[in-house]
Design a protein around this nucleic acid. Sequence first.
DNA 1: GGAATGCTTCGATGAGGATCGAACCATGCG
DNA 2: CGCATGGTTCGATCCTCATCGAAGCATTCC
Lengths: 224, 224
Amino acid sequence: MREGPDIARIASLVGDPARANMLNALMGGTALTASELALEAGVSLPTASSHLSKLMEGGLLTLASQGRHRYYGLASAQVAGMIEAIIGVAEAVRPKRVRPGPRDAAMRVARVCYDHLAGEQAVAMLDRLFDRKLLLREDNQIRLSPAGASHFSALGIETHAKARRPVCRACLDWSVRRSHLAGTLGAAILDKIIAEKWARREKDSRAVVFSPTGRQAFERVFLS
Amino acid sequence: MREGPDIARIASLVGDPARANMLNALMGGTALTASELALEAGVSLPTASSHLSKLMEGGLLTLASQGRHRYYGLASAQVAGMIEAIIGVAEAVRPKRVRPGPRDAAMRVARVCYDHLAGEQAVAMLDRLFDRKLLLREDNQIRLSPAGASHFSALGIETHAKARRPVCRACLDWSVRRSHLAGTLGAAILDKIIAEKWARREKDSRAVVFSPTGRQAFERVFLS
DNA sequence: GGAATGCTTCGATGAGGATCGAACCATGCG
DNA sequence: CGCATGGTTCGATCCTCATCGAAGCATTCC
Protein backbone atom coordinates (compact mmCIF):
# COMPACT_ATOMS: atom_id res chain seq x y z
CA MET A 1 0.00 0.00 0.00
CA ARG A 2 1.46 3.29 1.03
CA GLU A 3 2.33 4.68 -2.32
CA GLY A 4 3.94 7.99 -2.85
CA PRO A 5 7.54 9.00 -3.13
CA ASP A 6 9.97 6.37 -1.99
CA ILE A 7 11.43 8.27 0.89
CA ALA A 8 13.16 5.25 2.40
CA ARG A 9 15.12 4.72 -0.78
CA ILE A 10 16.47 8.26 -0.75
CA ALA A 11 17.15 8.30 2.96
CA SER A 12 18.96 4.98 2.89
CA LEU A 13 21.26 6.35 0.21
CA VAL A 14 22.31 9.05 2.65
CA GLY A 15 22.22 6.59 5.52
CA ASP A 16 25.47 4.83 4.77
CA PRO A 17 28.49 6.46 6.48
CA ALA A 18 30.68 6.33 3.39
CA ARG A 19 28.03 7.88 1.18
CA ALA A 20 27.16 10.45 3.81
CA ASN A 21 30.79 11.56 3.95
CA MET A 22 30.88 11.87 0.20
CA LEU A 23 27.73 13.95 0.09
CA ASN A 24 29.01 16.07 2.90
CA ALA A 25 32.21 16.72 0.98
CA LEU A 26 30.17 17.69 -2.06
CA MET A 27 28.24 20.23 0.00
CA GLY A 28 31.18 22.50 -0.60
CA GLY A 29 29.78 23.00 -4.06
CA THR A 30 32.76 21.82 -6.08
CA ALA A 31 32.58 18.62 -8.05
CA LEU A 32 35.09 15.96 -7.02
CA THR A 33 36.58 12.87 -8.62
CA ALA A 34 35.96 9.32 -7.48
CA SER A 35 39.40 9.02 -5.90
CA GLU A 36 39.03 12.26 -3.99
CA LEU A 37 35.71 11.08 -2.70
CA ALA A 38 37.13 7.70 -1.77
CA LEU A 39 39.78 9.45 0.28
CA GLU A 40 37.18 11.71 1.84
CA ALA A 41 35.01 8.79 2.83
CA GLY A 42 37.87 6.61 3.98
CA VAL A 43 37.09 3.66 1.73
CA SER A 44 38.85 1.94 -1.13
CA LEU A 45 38.34 3.02 -4.69
CA PRO A 46 36.14 0.09 -5.71
CA THR A 47 33.91 0.67 -2.73
CA ALA A 48 33.63 4.35 -3.51
CA SER A 49 32.83 3.60 -7.10
CA SER A 50 30.05 1.30 -6.07
CA HIS A 51 28.60 3.94 -3.80
CA LEU A 52 28.83 6.57 -6.48
CA SER A 53 26.89 4.52 -8.97
CA LYS A 54 24.20 3.98 -6.37
CA LEU A 55 23.99 7.70 -5.70
CA MET A 56 23.84 8.34 -9.44
CA GLU A 57 21.08 5.85 -9.93
CA GLY A 58 19.23 7.41 -7.05
CA GLY A 59 19.38 10.76 -8.82
CA LEU A 60 21.36 12.48 -6.10
CA LEU A 61 24.46 13.19 -8.16
CA THR A 62 25.42 14.51 -11.56
CA LEU A 63 28.44 13.39 -13.50
CA ALA A 64 30.69 15.38 -15.81
CA SER A 65 33.34 13.48 -17.71
CA GLN A 66 36.44 15.36 -18.70
CA GLY A 67 39.06 13.25 -20.34
CA ARG A 68 39.92 10.45 -18.00
CA HIS A 69 38.55 12.36 -15.04
CA ARG A 70 34.98 12.01 -13.93
CA TYR A 71 33.65 14.78 -11.73
CA TYR A 72 30.76 14.04 -9.41
CA GLY A 73 28.60 16.81 -8.00
CA LEU A 74 25.30 17.22 -6.21
CA ALA A 75 22.39 16.91 -8.61
CA SER A 76 20.50 19.99 -7.51
CA ALA A 77 20.02 22.67 -4.91
CA GLN A 78 17.07 20.66 -3.69
CA VAL A 79 19.35 17.78 -2.83
CA ALA A 80 21.68 20.18 -1.05
CA GLY A 81 18.73 21.55 0.89
CA MET A 82 17.72 18.08 1.96
CA ILE A 83 21.20 17.32 3.23
CA GLU A 84 21.27 20.60 5.13
CA ALA A 85 17.97 19.62 6.73
CA ILE A 86 19.36 16.26 7.80
CA ILE A 87 22.48 17.94 9.16
CA GLY A 88 20.22 20.25 11.10
CA VAL A 89 18.44 17.39 12.81
CA ALA A 90 21.67 15.54 13.48
CA GLU A 91 23.08 18.71 14.98
CA ALA A 92 20.03 19.29 17.17
CA VAL A 93 19.96 15.71 18.34
CA ARG A 94 23.65 15.34 18.91
CA PRO A 95 24.50 14.62 22.53
CA LYS A 96 25.97 17.74 24.07
CA ARG A 97 29.43 18.19 22.74
CA VAL A 98 32.30 19.26 24.92
CA ARG A 99 32.95 22.50 23.12
CA PRO A 100 32.77 23.49 19.51
CA GLY A 101 36.26 23.58 18.05
CA PRO A 102 37.63 26.65 16.29
CA ARG A 103 36.71 25.30 12.88
CA ASP A 104 33.21 24.73 14.10
CA ALA A 105 33.06 28.33 15.24
CA ALA A 106 34.11 29.63 11.84
CA MET A 107 31.52 27.36 10.24
CA ARG A 108 28.84 28.86 12.42
CA VAL A 109 29.70 32.37 11.37
CA ALA A 110 29.81 31.78 7.63
CA ARG A 111 30.06 28.75 5.38
CA VAL A 112 29.18 27.57 1.93
CA CYS A 113 25.91 25.70 1.54
CA TYR A 114 26.21 24.11 -1.88
CA ASP A 115 26.34 27.38 -3.81
CA HIS A 116 25.22 30.09 -1.42
CA LEU A 117 26.21 31.53 1.94
CA ALA A 118 25.01 30.02 5.21
CA GLY A 119 25.68 30.69 8.89
CA GLU A 120 25.08 33.64 11.19
CA GLN A 121 26.14 36.16 8.59
CA ALA A 122 23.73 34.73 6.04
CA VAL A 123 20.82 34.64 8.46
CA ALA A 124 21.48 38.23 9.50
CA MET A 125 21.61 39.23 5.86
CA LEU A 126 18.24 37.69 5.07
CA ASP A 127 16.68 39.40 8.08
CA ARG A 128 18.03 42.71 6.93
CA LEU A 129 16.80 42.20 3.35
CA PHE A 130 13.32 41.66 4.74
CA ASP A 131 13.57 44.76 6.95
CA ARG A 132 14.55 46.85 4.00
CA LYS A 133 11.70 45.37 1.97
CA LEU A 134 14.07 44.26 -0.74
CA LEU A 135 12.64 40.81 -0.27
CA LEU A 136 9.08 39.97 0.71
CA ARG A 137 7.89 37.00 2.71
CA GLU A 138 4.88 35.30 1.17
CA ASP A 139 3.35 32.25 2.72
CA ASN A 140 6.31 29.90 2.76
CA GLN A 141 7.99 31.55 -0.15
CA ILE A 142 10.28 34.50 -0.67
CA ARG A 143 9.69 37.02 -3.43
CA LEU A 144 11.87 39.80 -4.80
CA SER A 145 10.31 43.26 -4.51
CA PRO A 146 10.65 45.84 -7.30
CA ALA A 147 12.92 47.82 -4.99
CA GLY A 148 14.98 44.70 -4.45
CA ALA A 149 15.26 44.05 -8.16
CA SER A 150 16.75 47.47 -8.84
CA HIS A 151 18.91 47.30 -5.73
CA PHE A 152 20.61 44.07 -6.76
CA SER A 153 20.79 45.17 -10.34
CA ALA A 154 22.71 48.26 -9.19
CA LEU A 155 25.16 45.93 -7.45
CA GLY A 156 25.69 44.09 -10.70
CA ILE A 157 23.68 41.09 -9.59
CA GLU A 158 21.22 39.77 -12.12
CA THR A 159 17.89 38.64 -10.77
CA HIS A 160 16.12 37.30 -13.81
CA ALA A 161 14.48 33.93 -13.36
CA LYS A 162 16.23 31.36 -15.46
CA ALA A 163 15.25 27.81 -16.11
CA ARG A 164 13.08 26.38 -13.38
CA ARG A 165 15.24 27.32 -10.46
CA PRO A 166 13.69 29.97 -8.22
CA VAL A 167 15.46 33.28 -7.67
CA CYS A 168 14.77 33.27 -3.96
CA ARG A 169 14.43 30.30 -1.71
CA ALA A 170 14.57 29.86 2.03
CA CYS A 171 17.09 27.33 3.30
CA LEU A 172 17.07 26.29 6.94
CA ASP A 173 20.33 26.90 8.74
CA TRP A 174 21.40 24.10 11.06
CA SER A 175 23.60 26.27 13.24
CA VAL A 176 21.21 29.15 13.73
CA ARG A 177 17.97 27.24 13.21
CA ARG A 178 16.56 30.00 11.07
CA SER A 179 16.38 30.57 7.35
CA HIS A 180 18.98 32.02 5.07
CA LEU A 181 18.77 32.87 1.40
CA ALA A 182 19.23 30.26 -1.31
CA GLY A 183 18.19 30.24 -4.96
CA THR A 184 19.93 31.98 -7.84
CA LEU A 185 20.05 35.23 -5.88
CA GLY A 186 21.72 33.54 -2.94
CA ALA A 187 24.24 31.97 -5.28
CA ALA A 188 24.92 35.28 -7.03
CA ILE A 189 25.56 37.02 -3.72
CA LEU A 190 28.10 34.41 -2.70
CA ASP A 191 29.76 34.76 -6.09
CA LYS A 192 30.06 38.49 -5.53
CA ILE A 193 31.52 38.02 -2.04
CA ILE A 194 34.23 35.78 -3.43
CA ALA A 195 34.78 37.83 -6.59
CA GLU A 196 35.22 41.02 -4.58
CA LYS A 197 37.63 39.12 -2.32
CA TRP A 198 35.63 40.11 0.74
CA ALA A 199 36.14 36.57 1.95
CA ARG A 200 37.96 33.43 0.99
CA ARG A 201 37.06 29.79 1.31
CA GLU A 202 38.93 27.83 3.93
CA LYS A 203 40.90 24.98 2.43
CA ASP A 204 39.26 21.56 2.78
CA SER A 205 36.30 22.98 4.63
CA ARG A 206 33.03 24.70 3.97
CA ALA A 207 34.02 27.62 6.17
CA VAL A 208 34.07 31.09 4.64
CA VAL A 209 36.41 33.57 6.29
CA PHE A 210 35.94 37.30 5.85
CA SER A 211 38.86 39.68 5.83
CA PRO A 212 38.52 42.71 8.13
CA THR A 213 37.92 45.10 5.26
CA GLY A 214 35.81 42.52 3.44
CA ARG A 215 33.56 42.19 6.41
CA GLN A 216 33.09 45.93 6.53
CA ALA A 217 32.22 46.01 2.85
CA PHE A 218 29.78 43.13 3.23
CA GLU A 219 28.11 44.75 6.19
CA ARG A 220 27.87 48.06 4.40
CA VAL A 221 26.22 46.53 1.36
CA PHE A 222 24.04 43.84 2.91
CA LEU A 223 23.67 44.53 6.62
CA SER A 224 23.28 48.30 6.70
CA MET B 1 38.11 12.26 7.93
CA ARG B 2 35.77 15.07 8.91
CA GLU B 3 33.73 14.45 11.99
CA GLY B 4 30.63 16.56 11.78
CA PRO B 5 27.18 15.81 12.99
CA ASP B 6 26.34 12.19 12.39
CA ILE B 7 24.16 12.62 9.37
CA ALA B 8 24.38 8.99 8.33
CA ARG B 9 22.93 7.88 11.61
CA ILE B 10 19.88 10.09 11.20
CA ALA B 11 19.42 9.28 7.54
CA SER B 12 19.70 5.56 8.09
CA LEU B 13 16.94 5.80 10.67
CA VAL B 14 14.66 7.16 7.96
CA GLY B 15 16.18 4.79 5.43
CA ASP B 16 14.35 1.67 6.50
CA PRO B 17 11.00 1.18 4.75
CA ALA B 18 9.12 0.29 7.88
CA ARG B 19 10.45 3.29 9.78
CA ALA B 20 9.87 5.57 6.82
CA ASN B 21 6.24 4.53 6.70
CA MET B 22 5.87 5.21 10.38
CA LEU B 23 7.40 8.65 10.10
CA ASN B 24 5.27 9.36 7.09
CA ALA B 25 2.18 8.43 9.03
CA LEU B 26 3.25 10.73 11.85
CA MET B 27 3.61 13.64 9.44
CA GLY B 28 -0.09 14.23 9.98
CA GLY B 29 0.87 15.65 13.34
CA THR B 30 -1.14 13.26 15.44
CA ALA B 31 0.60 11.00 17.86
CA LEU B 32 -0.08 7.32 17.23
CA THR B 33 0.21 4.15 19.26
CA ALA B 34 2.67 1.37 18.53
CA SER B 35 -0.03 -0.92 17.17
CA GLU B 36 -1.38 1.72 14.82
CA LEU B 37 2.11 2.34 13.55
CA ALA B 38 2.74 -1.36 13.13
CA LEU B 39 -0.36 -1.59 10.98
CA GLU B 40 0.68 1.48 9.04
CA ALA B 41 4.11 0.07 8.33
CA GLY B 42 2.88 -3.42 7.62
CA VAL B 43 5.05 -5.15 10.19
CA SER B 44 4.42 -7.13 13.33
CA LEU B 45 4.14 -5.49 16.68
CA PRO B 46 7.52 -6.63 17.99
CA THR B 47 9.20 -5.35 14.87
CA ALA B 48 7.44 -2.03 15.14
CA SER B 49 8.38 -1.76 18.77
CA SER B 50 12.02 -2.33 17.92
CA HIS B 51 11.90 0.38 15.26
CA LEU B 52 10.21 2.78 17.60
CA SER B 53 12.87 2.42 20.25
CA LYS B 54 15.51 3.10 17.62
CA LEU B 55 13.72 6.21 16.49
CA MET B 56 13.37 7.30 20.08
CA GLU B 57 17.04 6.78 20.78
CA GLY B 58 17.84 8.71 17.64
CA GLY B 59 15.85 11.64 18.97
CA LEU B 60 13.34 11.67 16.14
CA LEU B 61 10.30 10.85 18.23
CA THR B 62 8.68 11.88 21.46
CA LEU B 63 6.71 9.57 23.66
CA ALA B 64 3.69 10.35 25.79
CA SER B 65 2.41 7.59 28.03
CA GLN B 66 -1.23 7.69 28.93
CA GLY B 67 -2.35 4.73 30.93
CA ARG B 68 -1.61 1.63 28.98
CA HIS B 69 -1.37 3.57 25.75
CA ARG B 70 1.88 5.01 24.53
CA TYR B 71 1.59 7.74 21.95
CA TYR B 72 4.49 8.33 19.62
CA GLY B 73 4.85 11.60 17.77
CA LEU B 74 7.48 13.48 15.78
CA ALA B 75 9.98 15.12 18.07
CA SER B 76 9.90 18.57 16.51
CA ALA B 77 8.93 20.69 13.55
CA GLN B 78 12.56 20.47 12.53
CA VAL B 79 12.26 16.72 12.15
CA ALA B 80 9.06 17.18 10.16
CA GLY B 81 10.85 19.68 7.95
CA MET B 82 13.64 17.23 7.31
CA ILE B 83 11.19 14.54 6.28
CA GLU B 84 9.45 16.98 3.99
CA ALA B 85 12.78 17.78 2.38
CA ILE B 86 13.46 14.11 1.78
CA ILE B 87 9.97 13.64 0.35
CA GLY B 88 10.64 16.57 -1.94
CA VAL B 89 13.79 14.97 -3.33
CA ALA B 90 12.15 11.58 -3.66
CA GLU B 91 9.32 13.24 -5.51
CA ALA B 92 11.65 15.11 -7.85
CA VAL B 93 13.77 12.08 -8.52
CA ARG B 94 10.97 9.61 -8.97
CA PRO B 95 11.29 7.95 -12.37
CA LYS B 96 8.84 9.78 -14.55
CA ARG B 97 6.18 7.32 -15.42
CA VAL B 98 5.11 7.54 -19.01
CA ARG B 99 2.31 9.68 -17.78
CA PRO B 100 1.01 10.29 -14.29
CA GLY B 101 -1.72 7.71 -13.99
CA PRO B 102 -5.25 8.80 -13.21
CA ARG B 103 -4.78 7.82 -9.63
CA ASP B 104 -1.73 10.05 -9.34
CA ALA B 105 -3.70 12.95 -10.74
CA ALA B 106 -6.52 12.25 -8.33
CA MET B 107 -4.00 12.17 -5.48
CA ARG B 108 -2.81 15.61 -6.38
CA VAL B 109 -6.30 17.03 -6.37
CA ALA B 110 -7.43 15.57 -3.08
CA ARG B 111 -6.18 12.85 -0.79
CA VAL B 112 -6.24 11.80 2.81
CA CYS B 113 -3.29 12.85 4.93
CA TYR B 114 -3.78 10.49 7.88
CA ASP B 115 -7.11 11.96 8.97
CA HIS B 116 -7.51 15.21 7.13
CA LEU B 117 -7.69 16.40 3.54
CA ALA B 118 -4.57 17.19 1.50
CA GLY B 119 -3.90 18.17 -2.11
CA GLU B 120 -4.91 21.11 -4.25
CA GLN B 121 -8.40 21.25 -2.87
CA ALA B 122 -7.12 21.33 0.69
CA VAL B 123 -4.56 24.03 -0.01
CA ALA B 124 -7.19 26.16 -1.74
CA MET B 125 -9.50 25.67 1.19
CA LEU B 126 -6.95 26.84 3.73
CA ASP B 127 -6.18 29.91 1.63
CA ARG B 128 -9.87 30.74 1.52
CA LEU B 129 -10.33 30.26 5.25
CA PHE B 130 -7.56 32.77 5.83
CA ASP B 131 -9.09 35.22 3.34
CA ARG B 132 -12.41 35.03 5.10
CA LYS B 133 -10.66 35.49 8.45
CA LEU B 134 -12.19 32.32 9.81
CA LEU B 135 -8.67 31.23 10.62
CA LEU B 136 -5.81 33.49 11.63
CA ARG B 137 -2.16 32.99 10.93
CA GLU B 138 -0.03 33.57 13.99
CA ASP B 139 3.67 33.12 13.82
CA ASN B 140 3.94 29.57 12.57
CA GLN B 141 0.68 28.54 14.08
CA ILE B 142 -2.93 28.70 13.00
CA ARG B 143 -5.66 29.94 15.33
CA LEU B 144 -9.42 29.81 15.04
CA SER B 145 -11.08 33.25 15.05
CA PRO B 146 -14.36 33.86 16.91
CA ALA B 147 -16.05 34.21 13.53
CA GLY B 148 -14.55 30.88 12.52
CA ALA B 149 -15.73 29.20 15.69
CA SER B 150 -19.35 30.17 15.07
CA HIS B 151 -19.04 29.41 11.36
CA PHE B 152 -17.90 25.84 11.91
CA SER B 153 -20.31 25.39 14.76
CA ALA B 154 -23.16 26.33 12.39
CA LEU B 155 -21.95 23.60 10.05
CA GLY B 156 -22.18 21.11 12.86
CA ILE B 157 -18.43 20.92 13.30
CA GLU B 158 -17.24 21.04 16.87
CA THR B 159 -14.12 23.08 17.47
CA HIS B 160 -13.45 22.56 21.16
CA ALA B 161 -9.92 21.61 22.02
CA LYS B 162 -9.84 18.07 23.30
CA ALA B 163 -6.97 16.12 24.73
CA ARG B 164 -3.59 17.43 23.68
CA ARG B 165 -4.21 17.61 20.01
CA PRO B 166 -4.40 21.11 18.54
CA VAL B 167 -7.53 22.23 16.73
CA CYS B 168 -5.62 23.80 13.88
CA ARG B 169 -2.28 22.83 12.51
CA ALA B 170 -0.48 23.52 9.26
CA CYS B 171 0.72 20.51 7.32
CA LEU B 172 3.01 20.93 4.35
CA ASP B 173 1.69 19.45 1.14
CA TRP B 174 4.24 17.53 -0.92
CA SER B 175 2.36 17.90 -4.18
CA VAL B 176 1.60 21.60 -3.95
CA ARG B 177 4.49 22.57 -1.67
CA ARG B 178 2.26 24.74 0.44
CA SER B 179 0.34 24.26 3.65
CA HIS B 180 -3.02 22.68 4.20
CA LEU B 181 -5.09 22.30 7.35
CA ALA B 182 -4.48 19.51 9.84
CA GLY B 183 -5.48 19.17 13.50
CA THR B 184 -8.88 18.21 14.88
CA LEU B 185 -10.58 20.79 12.69
CA GLY B 186 -8.94 19.41 9.59
CA ALA B 187 -10.04 15.93 10.63
CA ALA B 188 -13.60 17.08 11.36
CA ILE B 189 -13.87 18.72 7.95
CA LEU B 190 -12.79 15.53 6.25
CA ASP B 191 -15.30 13.61 8.33
CA LYS B 192 -18.03 15.94 7.17
CA ILE B 193 -17.01 15.60 3.53
CA ILE B 194 -17.29 11.84 3.80
CA ALA B 195 -20.43 11.88 5.96
CA GLU B 196 -22.22 14.19 3.53
CA LYS B 197 -21.12 11.89 0.73
CA TRP B 198 -19.57 14.79 -1.11
CA ALA B 199 -16.65 12.50 -1.85
CA ARG B 200 -15.57 8.94 -1.28
CA ARG B 201 -12.23 7.40 -0.50
CA GLU B 202 -10.68 5.44 -3.32
CA LYS B 203 -10.19 1.82 -2.31
CA ASP B 204 -6.64 0.98 -1.21
CA SER B 205 -5.42 4.48 -1.90
CA ARG B 206 -5.25 7.81 -0.19
CA ALA B 207 -7.09 9.48 -3.06
CA VAL B 208 -10.36 11.26 -2.32
CA VAL B 209 -12.75 11.57 -5.25
CA PHE B 210 -15.50 14.18 -5.25
CA SER B 211 -18.80 13.61 -6.98
CA PRO B 212 -19.97 16.44 -9.27
CA THR B 213 -22.64 17.62 -6.87
CA GLY B 214 -20.37 16.96 -3.92
CA ARG B 215 -17.73 19.19 -5.37
CA GLN B 216 -20.24 21.98 -5.81
CA ALA B 217 -21.37 21.63 -2.23
CA PHE B 218 -17.78 21.61 -0.98
CA GLU B 219 -16.91 24.70 -2.99
CA ARG B 220 -20.00 26.51 -1.81
CA VAL B 221 -19.25 25.84 1.83
CA PHE B 222 -15.45 26.09 1.92
CA LEU B 223 -14.25 27.83 -1.21
CA SER B 224 -16.84 30.56 -1.67
C1' DG C 1 -8.03 -11.11 42.32
C1' DG C 2 -8.08 -12.58 37.58
C1' DA C 3 -8.65 -11.76 32.79
C1' DA C 4 -7.81 -8.81 28.90
C1' DT C 5 -5.30 -5.44 26.41
C1' DG C 6 -1.17 -2.91 24.92
C1' DC C 7 3.47 -3.09 24.46
C1' DT C 8 8.39 -4.61 25.06
C1' DT C 9 12.16 -7.99 25.37
C1' DC C 10 14.39 -12.30 24.01
C1' DG C 11 16.19 -15.60 20.80
C1' DA C 12 16.78 -17.60 16.43
C1' DT C 13 16.77 -16.96 11.55
C1' DG C 14 17.76 -15.04 7.29
C1' DA C 15 18.77 -11.62 3.72
C1' DG C 16 20.74 -7.64 2.11
C1' DG C 17 24.61 -4.98 1.39
C1' DA C 18 29.27 -3.00 2.54
C1' DT C 19 33.81 -4.19 1.89
C1' DC C 20 38.19 -5.19 -0.58
C1' DG C 21 41.62 -7.64 -3.85
C1' DA C 22 42.15 -8.76 -8.33
C1' DA C 23 41.07 -8.42 -12.86
C1' DC C 24 39.30 -5.56 -16.39
C1' DC C 25 38.27 -1.19 -19.49
C1' DA C 26 39.49 3.60 -20.95
C1' DT C 27 42.10 7.61 -21.61
C1' DG C 28 46.37 10.09 -22.01
C1' DC C 29 51.51 10.24 -22.55
C1' DG C 30 55.90 9.40 -24.58
C1' DC D 1 52.54 1.07 -29.77
C1' DG D 2 53.46 0.02 -24.59
C1' DC D 3 53.10 1.96 -20.10
C1' DA D 4 50.92 4.66 -16.46
C1' DT D 5 46.86 6.53 -14.37
C1' DG D 6 41.91 6.91 -13.28
C1' DG D 7 37.86 4.23 -12.88
C1' DT D 8 34.63 0.29 -12.97
C1' DT D 9 33.23 -4.66 -12.61
C1' DC D 10 33.53 -9.22 -10.48
C1' DG D 11 33.67 -12.54 -6.81
C1' DA D 12 34.01 -13.92 -2.20
C1' DT D 13 33.59 -12.75 2.52
C1' DC D 14 31.58 -11.02 6.39
C1' DC D 15 28.50 -8.57 9.41
C1' DT D 16 24.80 -5.87 10.47
C1' DC D 17 20.08 -5.61 11.13
C1' DA D 18 15.16 -6.51 9.97
C1' DT D 19 11.96 -9.91 11.03
C1' DC D 20 8.73 -12.75 13.74
C1' DG D 21 7.07 -16.21 17.49
C1' DA D 22 7.01 -16.80 22.16
C1' DA D 23 7.39 -15.18 26.52
C1' DG D 24 7.42 -11.41 29.86
C1' DC D 25 5.72 -6.64 32.02
C1' DA D 26 2.42 -3.18 32.81
C1' DT D 27 -2.06 -1.17 33.15
C1' DT D 28 -6.91 -1.25 33.19
C1' DC D 29 -11.43 -3.35 33.53
C1' DC D 30 -14.70 -6.38 35.71
